[in-house]
């Protein structure tokens, strides 16, 4: 199925259907991840691959136009490169351990400790959470910084300075358009609190089941997207202040980092959570809680920043093509 969708993407010329298909691709791979026992990953892929990235593509397409020009040059070189790379990979699979085999080296080294000892060392049933937020907390910190970087990058590329009259103009336009959506608006108003509640549940339940800061952040952001789409940008602007979101994104990173700094100040290694409480396992709980909160905060606010800047760009008519030297 995945292969079918991927081939369809090659032949399609209409960018709108391509982005829809890529959403389907994300959703399919998410269900594949569930079959492979990777529930946390599936959760994330479903919200990111099928949700956020499709949404961003759709917004981008509204600004860039839908259709792709046919390829004029012969893609022989590209085919050759792809063929060589692909055959190298197939060649590499020859000596791989078989799919699903329990004897494979990755199941013999490093991972057994996570499976056998994480309960005593960290006390959290979800091993993925333990590894993510404690054993390899620094990678996850890097991940939060990556998403923060993306937020700042999008801001640097797309942010537009808004004038008051612009907002009013958009306002009147929005009001006329959105009156038709009365039913939708009411349904949404009822739904949004539940979505947010669900986000909080995912945020704080990551220790036990699939979920955690990242997924929660995306869901929370989705609630705000929904609000924005139905009530218009300017209403959303009034409720959610842009620079406030930036501060929030920065605080998420800082919250995460400060947990590490506390360990340092207590003479332990960076991100050693045992300093947070007299009992090391409770310390781990606190550490994971704070760190996940930092992740959630940054992810939600960066998603909102990215979305607002994309959408804000498309509502404002783009500035005339500037021809600089």
């Amino acid at each position: 199925m995945l292969v079918g969708v991927a081939f369809a993407i090659i032949w399609m010329k209409d960018l709108l259907s391509i982005s829809m298909l890529s959403g389907i691709y994300g959703l399919l791979s998410a269900s594949f991840f569930v079959a492979m026992d990777a529930v946390d990953v599936a959760f994330t892929e479903a919200s990111v691959g099928a949700g956020v990235s499709t949404l961003l593509m759709l917004v981008a397409i509204t600004m860039t136009g839908r259709s792709e020009h046919p390829v004029r040059h012969k893609p022989l070189l590209a085919l050759a490169v792809v063929f060589v790379t692909g055959s190298l990979l197939v060649y590499g699979t020859w000596d791989m351990p078989y799919f699903g085999s329990a004897e494979a080296p990755i199941h013999q080294h490093v991972a057994p400790r996570y499976i056998n000892d994480s309960m005593q060392e960290i006390g959290v049933p979800n091993i993925v959470t333990s590894v993510l937020a404690s054993y390899r907390a620094f990678d996850t910190f890097g991940e939060v910084v990556v998403i923060f970087t993306a937020g700042i990058g999008v801001l640097a590329l797309l942010s537009v300075v808004r004038r008051q009259e612009d907002i009013e103009k958009i306002d009147s336009f929005n009001n006329s358009m959105h009156e038709q959506h009365l039913v939708l608006r009411i349904v949404a108003k009822m739904l949004i609190p539940f979505i947010m509640l669900f986000a909080f549940y995912v945020q704080f339940h990551g220790d036990f089941g699939p979920g955690g800061g990242f997924q929660a952040g995306v869901i929370f952001a989705a609630a705000i997207f929904l609000y924005t789409m139905l009530f218009g940008m300017s209403t959303a602007y009034r409720v959610i202040n842009q620079s406030f979101m930036q501060i929030l994104a920065a605080s998420g990173v800082l919250l995460y980092g400060s947990v590490g700094v506390i360990s340092l100040l207590n003479g332990k290694e960076f991100f050693d959570y045992s300093v947070l409480s007299s009992n090391p396992v409770t310390g781990q709980h606190w550490g994971i809680f704070l760190v996940e909160l930092g992740v959630g905060l940054t992810v939600a606010s960066v998603m909102v920043i990215i979305f607002f800047n994309f959408a804000g760009r498309s509502e404002n008519s783009p500035p005339p093509v500037s021809k600089d030297s």
């Binding site: 190298l88 060649y91 590499g92 699979t93 000596d95 791989m96 080296p105 990755i106 080294h109 490093v110």
Partner: peptide, 26 residues
């Protein structure tokens, strides 16, 4: 996949055992 580890030092110890495999070559 061939060594079960991500640490560079650990990798350098475990790679020689499997260095003849096509996977490591790739």
């Amino acid at each position: 996949q061939m060594t079960g580890t991500l640490n560079m030092e650990d990798l350098s110890k475990r790679l020689p055992e499997v260095s003849q495999t096509r996977t490591v070559f790739t």
